[in-house]
Design a protein around this nucleic acid. Sequence first.
DNA 1: TTCATACTTCGACCGTAGCCGAAGCATATT
DNA 2: AATATGCTTCGGCTACGGTCGAAGTATGAA
Lengths: 226, 226
Amino acid sequence: MKEGPDISRIAALIGDPARANILTALMSGKALTATELASEAGVTVQTASTHLAKLEAAEMIVCRKSGRHKYFTLGGDDVGHALEALMGLAAGAGHLRMRTGPKDDALREARVCYNHLAGAKGIALYQGLLGQGVVVENGDDVVLTDQGATWLREFGVDVDGLMRSKTPLCRTCLDWSARQTHLAGSVGRALLVRMQDLGWAKRVEGTRVVQFTARGEAAFTEVFGR
Amino acid sequence: MKEGPDISRIAALIGDPARANILTALMSGKALTATELASEAGVTVQTASTHLAKLEAAEMIVCRKSGRHKYFTLGGDDVGHALEALMGLAAGAGHLRMRTGPKDDALREARVCYNHLAGAKGIALYQGLLGQGVVVENGDDVVLTDQGATWLREFGVDVDGLMRSKTPLCRTCLDWSARQTHLAGSVGRALLVRMQDLGWAKRVEGTRVVQFTARGEAAFTEVFGR
DNA sequence: TTCATACTTCGACCGTAGCCGAAGCATATT
DNA sequence: AATATGCTTCGGCTACGGTCGAAGTATGAA
């Protein structure tokens, strides 16, 4: 009768609002302490503690203790992917957050999606890469072209290093804000890092917002088109 | 404070065991009636009815009524993808079902995963296609080669028809039984259909099990190896 | 019309799990 | 040692939601 992996266990884990908030906060990719996560989730530290214990037992998050702090991060890329997929569903079903925060516009413009660029800027980036033949689409899969590898090298990305790693180079990721795809995978991550190194953009502390500088904005448009 | 779509709502929806069973049952891709789903989920029809109403309200499933029956199917591909992602997580965390049913071995051997072939046979199929250069891997993306299109045509698959459609040709899908990838996407689906047309395999009514005939087994090994 | 089947709604029961206050450890700082 | 900070455990309260029996609606068959 019952077959397959027990999907409901982990879904129930994500299903609690407090835990969902914790996980969403960790989608920023940054390591956060228990108290930070508690305030993020809107619960006391005690409750957060039990939640974190459960999430850790399920290997959805991992913790690294340093002194009297415990820093938490997402368990792995699979966890991020699953959360992204759920966000896509939630956005599609119109289940957006009730009170849309003041940062919502900024989030729609440019934000961090686990480790790569998302939002309007993320989509523009992807479209730009497609237009220049750096990557090509195949269904909803993306492939890095040979000329694309060269292009990336010139842009300052260590493509060969990425290729040695086992993590996939390119993946598509569906935006929950605009219903379009943008670029994830190690290339997507590397591009975000590179743009920060170039001083084009900075992350706004404590949020997932990515703030472009005036110069960065111009350079971005120059390279990727609007 | 709170940013992004409300992930917890739908996660909680999937988090209930009964609803999870319903969704898992619908992963077979077949349209099922309310009573069938009730027995599948192990609850009475009344409870199933309320669950179905909730799932439908969230657009996770759609229903088509015919006479006094109501046939339910998954809401869309996004739903399927999200469920797959969760299954991957659940399998990874070792949260497999407690009591493994009698059909479990058959499921591990060959089963329907939403609409394509999964299990040991699914993996063998994918490996065979890779070995013959019909598809090539790029990270965790898969691409159909030109020679692969020709091969498929000879195998009896209407590749050109598939290409005209907007749905992606090839996608990878992670098995929960063996932790390996197999082929999804419209090509994956078409191959399963073709094998059934050839009389190689039949679906066992009411389950996700795919039963290969002796002749089909031999032909499969012939064509794909292993 | 009458009966049977498929599904839905209502009402009441019950259990699980989230929540916080308070106390308990553990690690740093003085 | 004494104090402060970060995190965990315990106990009890509460509420939300899943569950089923029973009654109610819709559709098809006799």
